[in-house]
Design a protein around this nucleic acid. Structure first.
Lengths: 161, 161
DNA sequence: TATTGTTATACTCTATAACTATA
DNA sequence: TATAGTTATAGAGTATAACAATA
């Protein structure tokens, strides 16, 4: 405990303040997911602060790296945001020197998104930090528990598919 | 399907666009929680739109109703937000006619938060809508699965407690 | 001095709508 | 006409910092 690689948890969201009655909230799956998301988000942002990377930026970097020449409209759809939001996201990643817009010969309206050399290099370290932090957070569940949790979350997120 | 009580799912976040490689994202518990949270949030907001109630507003109403004479600073701590945010939240709930600030005799700086009669009445219907929507979303998991999921999420949110 | 609520200000992430240049 | 990207604008929701009244 109190290792220099860990962060004080007192600065973060305490999901259960002693002496407070949470009523129906404690029995809602939706509230449980929200609480977990807030807690994980804090940890995520802390561990990625050195690179100025937020959760949506990380998702964008991964998707761009795995899907060569992705178009901005596709990125917006994948991330579940409006095109205008994707523009600002890509602008930010371009400012960080991580992403570039490449001309697409077949369609002069569009361009393909790609990681820069710096983006590729840093994404390796960033991904390592994310995976490490994710495994640390999920450790209480064990490997089997984590997989089971992922499967259940997927069922929640895909109600009718 | 296509019952009038359901909402078109095409308007919402699709967590897995066909033909897209999500790379490491699919194996991260943090990303799974985030995806589920986005999907549930959409459903939540839809089902509570008639009352102009958002997730943080609902949480605040429940906490205020279950903890008489709660102070604003305590509410902020429970919700994990800054005091200034709690002020705006309470302002909004006051504008909706759901919450009022009562004088506290023992401390003239503070006041106790309370639901109005309208707040109490509407919260019954609102809670019913939330619970119904939550059970609908969690149905694929079954009752036992939901409880197990809640327990796992709690372990995620409370790393060291 | 410390705490309670408040205000001012700013930042992130999101949305809608209108625009341009291509298709 | 429709689509790709962009811009302008707005609204939640969050934060920090400074303030007045009270403890």
């Amino acid at each position: 405990m109190n290792n220099k690689n860990e962060v004080s948890i007192d600065a973060f969201f305490n999901p259960h303040v002693p002496g407070i009655d949470y009523g129906v909230l404690d029995s809602l799956v939706g509230y449980g997911v929200r609480r977990a998301q807030l807690a994980l988000n804090d940890l995520f942002i802390q561990s990625l602060a050195p690179w100025n990377i937020t959760p949506p930026r990380f998702s964008a970097l991964i998707v761009i790296s795995r899907n060569p020449s992705l178009k901005l409209t596709q990125l917006a759809k994948v991330l579940g945001i409006a095109r205008s939001g994707a523009v600002m996201l890509v602008d930010a990643l371009e400012d960080l020197g991580y992403v570039e817009r490449l001309d697409v010969p077949e369609d002069r309206r569009a361009f393909g998104l790609a990681l820069t050399a710096k983006g590729q290099a840093d994404l390796v370290a960033i991904t390592q930090a994310v995976v490490q932090q994710d495994q640390l957070a999920a450790r209480p569940l064990g490997a089997a528990g984590s997989e089971q949790l992922l499967a259940m979350l997927q069922q929640l997120a895909n109600p009718n598919r």
